[in-house]
Design a protein around this nucleic acid. Structure first.
Length: 268
DNA sequence: GGACAGGTGCGGT
DNA sequence: ACCGCACCTGTC
């Protein structure tokens, strides 16, 4: 089965390469992506992209199809830097991902590079996840909690091995649904009680796993953006607070456009 | 071969 | 609260 997304505010390259997701790739001109135990392929057809998947409803939500990106861009474009960034990454969508997958993916991402993160997550899926018709699923919480620390070391998690193992076990006895109903601020505090989740990782989980667009992950790239285009010499917590105030509930979108803008320009 | 990666935990003020 | 520092390890 398949459905269409207009290319006006979407393309898979912008969306997948702006750092929010790790299990994607290209094959013969098509993009493919995994999410938990689900899978989709994306390819262009005229002015649209076709999403081919066995779970249409899941991926319509995943690709944030009910959000009006024109309105978001109109608001953000009042800021000069953002007007360049939204033009540059016009096809970015914020993916509505699974909470468990974002929690563990972003613990792994801390002080790590994307290539290595992808390798670790792939091994994680192959060795712990269930087999599906198209590949291996991201492990369930139970599968993650049943693996020991040595396993996580073996697949290359380094000093994060203990964080992952501990957090998986603690989450087993935690009512994860609370995170959906709490305020963004309280959810962030709750997330930061788990090992391996600091302010940056918590913001990523809020934005990508809990759909809280009123969070602004401040990483090395955003720090650079801020110091180049906004002001110099501020601490992370101040940067995050300032940008959050500036962009409000559009913060998450602003963050992705800015991240993409600087990273693509400086790594090419 | 050393610095770098989408930071975090920990101990010391 | 707010620093400063050590930290696994593949990749360049």
């Amino acid at each position: 089965m398949e459905f269409l997304i207009s290319s006006k505010h979407f393309n898979p390259h912008d969306t997948f390469t702006c750092g929010q997701v790790f299990r994607y790739g290209t094959n013969q001109g098509r993009y493919y992506v995994f999410s938990m135990d689900k899978y989709a392929e994306v390819f262009q057809s005229g002015d649209d992209f076709i999403v081919e998947t066995s779970d249409v409803e899941y991926f319509k939500n995943y690709f944030d199809c009910q959000t009006d990106y024109q309105q978001i861009k109109d608001r953000l474009n009042k800021n000069l830097v953002l007007s360049y960034a939204t033009e540059y990454g016009s096809g970015i969508r914020i993916l509505r991902q699974s909470l468990i997958e974002t929690i563990f993916s972003f613990i792994i991402s801390a002080n790590n590079n994307i290539k290595r993160i992808q390798g670790i997550i792939e091994k994680l899926c192959i060795r712990l996840g269930s087999k599906t018709p198209y590949g291996y699923a991201f492990p369930t919480l139970l599968q993650l909690a049943n693996a020991d620390k040595q396993f996580y070391t073996e697949i290359g998690c380094g000093y994060r091995a203990g964080y992952i193992q501990q957090t998986a076990i603690e989450l087993l006895n935690y009512d994860i649904n609370k995170l959906y109903t709490m305020s963004t601020k309280d959810s962030k505090k709750a997330l930061m009680n788990f090992k391996g989740i600091g302010p940056k990782v918590a913001d990523c989980i809020l934005l990508f796993g809990l759909n809280r667009s009123d969070s602004f992950p401040t990483d090395t790239w955003i720090r650079k953006v801020y110091h180049i285009y906004f002001e110099a010499g501020h601490k992370d917590s101040e940067i995050s607070g300032y940008l959050l105030e500036l962009f409000g509930s559009d913060s998450g979108y602003a963050q992705q456009y800015l991240f993409n803008y600087l990273r693509q320009k400086t790594t090419k």
